[in-house]
Amino acid sequence: MWKSIIYKEWLKIRFFLIGFTILGMMGIAYLFLKVQHEFTFSGGGNFWYNILFMGMQFFGYFKFIPLSGGLLIAVVQYFPETIDQRIKLTFHLPLKENNVLLMMHSFGAGCLLLSYLLLMVVFISLSAIYFPSEMVYDSIVSVIPWFMAGFVAYFFVALIVMEPSWLYRIMYSLVGGFFVTIYVKSPVIAAYGPAIPGLSLLTILMSVALLFSAYRFRKGEM
């Protein structure tokens, strides 16, 4: 039965997940096309100098791509469940309701993680062609919070979509909207270093947030 549940989730998100991953790849390809162009016209030395001392972040265009992926996957995975309260069919299965929800959620987050890992591997590999390890490391420290923002968006949208009351949906959206902004500030490169452990912990904690609104949904809170 677990396999069937996973297959159902896969059917919902597959095209969007693959589409997002391809678009993300295209975004990264654009970044490095631009880097290659700048190397050709301005020289590698100038480009490095601008990153090291002038605050240039060549990967800045990438900032909201992971976030949009998290939003997209959460909407396509959970919104269909709220149409005619289809999720109730799942709750009637001879399985613990929370376990089913956690399985759905883990599968969605796992797929998102795979997609993000793929994007990160491509980003790091291409970065390593043009930049030394120190600059690659600083870039990773800068983009990791953006990927965490994608997960937080996924967890919050799932919470909001499953929430039965519109009033609370709006209020959760406000909290979620402000919360996501802490991952996407615009500081100098690698400035997020000391905050990454705390932000990681918050992101992991947020993964079970869905259970609260799903509980309210099951109990018929309006």
Binding site: N98, V175, F179, L202, L205, A209, L210, L211, F212
Partner: peptide, 20 residues
Amino acid sequence: MEKLSRIILVLVAILVLAMT
């Protein structure tokens, strides 16, 4: 688990409110 998820949400909301 629902209780835990609610406590996490309350903590997150406290963080957000303490900033905004």
